[in-house]
Simulated assay, not measured.
Amino acid sequence: MHLTDERWHALLHRRAADPAAVQRAYADRRRRTSLLSPRGTLFLVAADHPARGALGVGADRTAMADRRMLLERLLIALDNPAVDGVLGSPDIVEELLLLDALHDKVVIGSMNRGGLAGADWEIDDRFTGYDAESLVKFRLDGGKMLLRLVDSDPGTIPTLHACARAVSDLAIHGLTAMVEPLPYHRDSSGALVMRKDSASLQRAITIASGLGITSAHTWLKIPAPEDISVLDATTLPVVVLGGAPSGDVHADLTSWGSALRHDVTRGLVVGRSLLYPRNGDVAGAVAAAARVVREAR
């Protein structure tokens, strides 16, 4: 499935001439009956980075700014039957719906994108995307929220509170809340740096696990830890976060595979590493990741 000139111009025409087509596409989407695949796994492609202004891949600071190219790469990824679905902001989800790419796929809507990459207020990550009510209305399968924890930044407090409310609101409707807790600190220059030590990651996991009025519908989205015992901190379902590509696809896949073998881990959520591999072979990168998920589980 590729984004031909004909399909691209048809998408642009519908955007301009028929905005109601978006609502019809939400309503007409064929939903699958289970979040998990028949093998009990979940493999999603993430595409919510642009809504937070995070457009860079490697040295290219605007790699994800070309929307036609991004959609083309997403279509290639979603064409692989091992890819269960997508995690995206409303604009990208709607474009994929208009391209008929999300039938029988899991769709997780991205909720908080207000902590713009590099902004002074980045940690105060306001909910500017989907909310629980819209996820129910549009018949999506859950909502994802980013929770960066910085003890020295008061912006953590409103984000923590908003995420707790979102977890509760989603649970009331029986929708999955996919929480991505990431511990950070600021270095001497003031730049945000993620803490990758076991203690910080375990602390983040336990904080996220306790959010909201119930954890019954909470999943965690966690970076693949070097120390797999980090994942002993929860009984909640975990999907491994692929994160920023290292440039070495084999090394990335190896690190994800180790985390995928832990008992609580159910699958993988990857964006830029698969959509923008160094060699340009999106289909090959997706197929390699699918093999890792299959073999680990």
Rank of each mutant, 00 (worst) to 15 (best):
A10F: 14
A191T: 14
D91R: 06
G212V: 08
D18C: 15
L146A: 10
A20G: 15
S215Y: 09
L146G: 07
H2G: 15
K137F: 13
A251T: 13
A166F: 13
I222H: 01
T218F: 02
D141N: 14
D227A: 13
I123Q: 02
L12Y: 08
R272G: 10
A164S: 07
G85T: 05
V93D: 01
R14D: 15
R15T: 13
A21G: 15
R15H: 10
Q23F: 09
L99I: 06
I157Q: 15
P245R: 10
G174Y: 12
H103A: 14
V57H: 00
V167R: 04
G142L: 05
T234E: 06
I222W: 03
A65F: 00
P158T: 08
A177K: 00
D48R: 02
D91P: 08
V107L: 01
A54D: 10
A288R: 14
G109N: 09
A224W: 05
R24Y: 08
G129Y: 05
P50C: 04
A289S: 13
R126G: 03
D131Q: 10
V292P: 12
G212Y: 04
H173P: 09
I123W: 08
V57T: 02
D84P: 00
L74T: 01
D125R: 03
R139L: 14
R126H: 13
R14N: 11
L11P: 10
L78Q: 01
G242A: 09
S189K: 09
E6P: 05
V45A: 03
S37K: 04
R272A: 11
R29I: 07
L35W: 12
W219L: 02
L236A: 15
T206L: 11
M64P: 00
G174C: 11
V238M: 07
T41W: 03
P50L: 02
D197S: 09
G85Q: 00
A65W: 04
R68N: 07
L3D: 08
T156K: 14
D66Q: 11
R195C: 12
A224H: 05
D120M: 10
A65H: 11
I108S: 00
R113G: 04
D28Q: 14
L78I: 00
D153M: 07
H9L: 15
P181N: 05
